[in-house]
Amino acid sequence: DHWHVHIDGERIRLDGASEEFIRTLEELIRRGTDARELKEIIKEYLR
């Protein structure tokens, strides 16, 4: 599956992301997590 998110107007691909990770991201977004912080979390995950 190819997922991607838009954060700060930037399109970030989440290739190979699990549904669990996507749900976690959605939860963080709902909580109002800062965009820079979200991008860091995604970069760490994709390593």
Rank of each mutant, 00 (worst) to 15 (best):
D1E: 12
D1R: 11
D1K: 12
D1W: 05
D1C: 09
H2A: 12
H2C: 05
W3N: 08
W3T: 08
W3R: 13
W3V: 10
H4R: 02
H4Q: 06
H4C: 09
H4V: 14
V5L: 08
V5P: 02
V5K: 03
V5F: 07
V5Y: 04
V5Q: 02
H6K: 09
H6Q: 09
H6Y: 07
H6A: 08
H6P: 02
H6S: 11
I7M: 05
I7W: 02
I7G: 01
I7E: 01
I7S: 02
I7R: 00
I7D: 01
I7F: 04
I7V: 08
D8G: 08
D8K: 04
D8V: 03
D8C: 05
G9Q: 04
G9Y: 04
G9R: 03
E10N: 05
E10P: 01
E10M: 06
E10G: 03
E10A: 04
E10Y: 07
R11W: 15
R11G: 09
R11S: 15
R11F: 15
R11E: 15
R11Y: 15
R11H: 15
I12H: 03
I12E: 01
I12D: 01
I12Q: 02
I12Y: 14
R13K: 09
R13I: 14
R13G: 15
R13F: 14
R13Q: 15
R13V: 15
L14P: 01
L14K: 01
L14N: 01
L14T: 02
L14V: 14
L14D: 00
D15I: 11
D15Q: 10
D15G: 06
D15H: 11
D15A: 08
G16F: 10
G16T: 07
G16P: 03
G16L: 06
G16K: 06
A17C: 02
A17R: 02
A17I: 07
S18A: 09
S18N: 08
S18C: 02
S18I: 05
S18G: 08
E19K: 13
E19R: 13
E19W: 15
E19Q: 14
E19C: 09
E19A: 15
E19M: 15
E19G: 10
E20R: 08
E20T: 13
E20V: 08
E20I: 10
F21H: 01
F21D: 01
F21T: 02
F21G: 00
F21W: 06
R23N: 06
R23K: 12
R23Q: 09
R23T: 06
R23G: 04
T24F: 11
T24H: 15
L25I: 12
L25Y: 02
E26Q: 14
E26F: 14
E26S: 11
E26G: 07
E26L: 15
E27H: 10
E27L: 14
L28N: 02
L28I: 06
L28Q: 03
L28R: 04
L28W: 07
I29Q: 04
I29W: 06
I29D: 00
I29R: 04
R30P: 00
R30D: 05
R30V: 07
R30S: 10
R30A: 12
R31V: 09
R31N: 10
R31D: 06
R31F: 09
G32R: 03
G32N: 05
G32F: 06
T33D: 03
T33Y: 06
T33N: 03
T33E: 04
T33C: 06
T33S: 07
D34M: 11
D34C: 09
D34F: 06
D34H: 12
D34L: 12
D34T: 15
D34V: 07
D34Q: 09
D34W: 04
A35H: 08
A35L: 09
A35K: 07
A35N: 07
A35C: 06
R36A: 13
R36C: 07
R36T: 13
E37V: 15
E37P: 02
E37Q: 13
E37W: 12
E37C: 06
L38R: 00
L38K: 00
L38C: 01
K39Q: 08
K39C: 02
K39A: 07
K39L: 15
K39Y: 15
E40P: 01
E40Q: 13
E40F: 12
I41T: 06
I41Y: 12
I41N: 01
I41D: 00
I42R: 00
I42F: 02
I42C: 02
I42D: 00
I42L: 06
I42P: 00
K43L: 13
K43C: 08
K43Y: 14
E44H: 11
E44V: 06
E44Y: 07
E44C: 14
E44R: 13
E44G: 07
E44F: 09
Y45A: 04
L46Y: 14
L46D: 02
L46R: 04
L46G: 02
L46W: 13
L46C: 02
L46H: 06
L46Q: 07
L46I: 11
L46T: 07
R47M: 13
R47L: 08
R47F: 11
R47A: 13
R47N: 10
R47I: 12
